[in-house]
Design a protein around this nucleic acid. Sequence first.
DNA 1: TAGGCCATCTGGTCCT
DNA 2: AGGACCAGATGGCCTA
Length: 295
Amino acid sequence: MDSDASLGSSRASSPEVDDLFLHPRKGSGFSAAVSSSTMSDSPAELSAELRNAMAMAAAAGDKLGAFKAAAAAAAAAVAKKDKKQMSENELQQLRLKINSRERKRMHDLNIAMDGLREVMPYAHGPSVRKLSKIATLLLARNYILMLTNSLEEMKRLVSEIYGGHHHHAAAAAAAAAAYHPSACGGMTHATPLPGHPVGHPVHHPLLPPTAATLATTGISAVRAPPPPPPPPAPPSSHPVSHGLLKSPSPGSAPLGGGFPHWSGMPCPCSMCQVPSAAHHHVSGSSLSRLTSDSK
DNA sequence: TAGGCCATCTGGTCCT
DNA sequence: AGGACCAGATGGCCTA
């Protein structure tokens, strides 16, 4: 059953809506959502209390305040009466208010999801399809696992190297622990990073190979074309093509979507989950459930 | 055209 | 009581 609010509403991923939530703030409440330009549920008819409250706040030159006051007035009005005694109009107002809140909640969730996408090591760009939510979550999980494993490995190597020199070992371990996440957070290792051994045979496994990394990996036949380039073939990938590995455009490799199966990197798809023993209990059924529930 | 992904609405449940 | 959270239903958009 379609409510009035759902009619004519555009997709909320539209920029003007996102702009409204660029600075999500605790306590902004549904007022921000109500002010959305996509809101088709702007009250057609307002109760007397609602109109009075909005008029008062508007007179004060505070649009958000107007809606907050309106919401408060609506809530107060609703509280006065039993729900059974609420008029059609009041019930609709309440429903719209709840819808707006839910909409804002989902928008905030999407903002968080975008924030997660931004720090995920995959090719960003206008020509690159945005990671789906499920892919973002799976990739994030595997990225974390990979970084954790890298850190552990680094610590192990450092302790081996500096095993006999405790004062150096501690400092080196601390340095190792410190550099990698931040460095990889930058996502591009155009030049060798401190701690990344020169000639390290693999570039960042989650990144499309750059010219520099290709050079170090010995893949010299592939040149990186000017942006937006369809990235060259990954050092190693399995030919699986499934729902989570969509290419951005016909004819481009899965890699073009910034979402390849990189050799040595955890794939975000459920098909390729090879959880570490420490996280074994997390994956398996929960991940399969996650993917199956995504519908 | 089917399937994937998404936004939105809605009712229920839990928490403060 | 009100808000947050959740899941199911629905419909739109896009792509293969």
